[in-house]
Design a protein around this nucleic acid. Structure first.
Lengths: 132, 132
DNA sequence: CATTGTGGTAGACTGTGTCTAATGTAGGAC
DNA sequence: GTCCTACATTAGACACAGTCTACCACAATG
């Protein structure tokens, strides 16, 4: 809570109640919610919060590098609350998205793609979590 | 053209004029169009073609494994006319999506992700095509 | 002919994300 | 504290992607 206020301030964003609630939700959750899931969750506390405020706040956080919007779900972007590089695994049974640590996979050959300047990449895997 | 008719037939799809136009467009283009771009292009020949027909045809082609829908552009899925595994590079200057051959990159560590059964993965790169 | 089935069409509908005009508020100057 | 200004929030309209449904066209079968 205090951390969230400090985080917003350090990003140069006035810590309004709405922004605190949004930031607290996405950083505590540790999942990959859509903007509408954030809206629904924050509405439980702030019943009048508008869609525009959620999108404004998410864009502001993204501009400051605290979150990223990622195209990992059909129909809607998801919010990735981890700014550091990592890979993603989409569980097609549950729809859940799992973070795979950067060092768990090694990609060779990127620097040989001489036609392009590449400033970011990730592996996107599809599969299913093993039971038991 | 004849190839397209044969392709549709071999997939078990009646080669109607609309389906031929759609299939010809996406396979000749070799790019990654959105459904609405396909609709707009095919409308030049078939002015009354409806959105539903385009989506129906794209879904049918996807069911037969001839195309894939991929989440590589903000706001809309793109159609990938290459069924074989490959990677993708998004040119953030032009918005273009380039196919990277499967063998150009090597990903190590996938089989060590023991908590998951993984049946597909790809590297998604972001960067810019070098000039000259 | 009538029937059946497949394919196409128009348009309504849902959901995501953007934008705008008007109101509300945070926080500094005094 | 009060005032002020710039920024935040809000409701609702809008644009677009994608789905769905009811109806129409047409060919094949009997």
């Amino acid at each position: 809570m205090q951390d969230t206020v400090a985080l917003l301030r350090s990003a140069g964003l006035t810590p309004t109640p709405q922004r605190i609630a949004i930031a607290r939700y996405i950083f505590d959750l540790g999942d990959h919610p859509t903007a509408d899931e954030v809206l629904a969750a924050v509405r439980r506390e702030h019943s009048t919060i508008s869609r525009a405020t959620v999108y404004n706040t998410l864009h502001a956080l993204a501009d400051k590098g605290l979150v990223r919007s990622r195209m990992l779900r059909e129909g809607a972007a998801v919010i990735d609350a981890r700014p550091e590089a990592h890979h993603h695994l989409i569980d097609e049974a549950s729809g859940k998205i799992f973070d795979i640590p950067w060092d768990a996979l090694k990609v060779a050959g990127v620097s040989e793609l001489n036609d392009f300047d590449i400033w970011e990449y990730q592996v996107v895997l599809r599969g299913r979590k093993r039971q038991g």
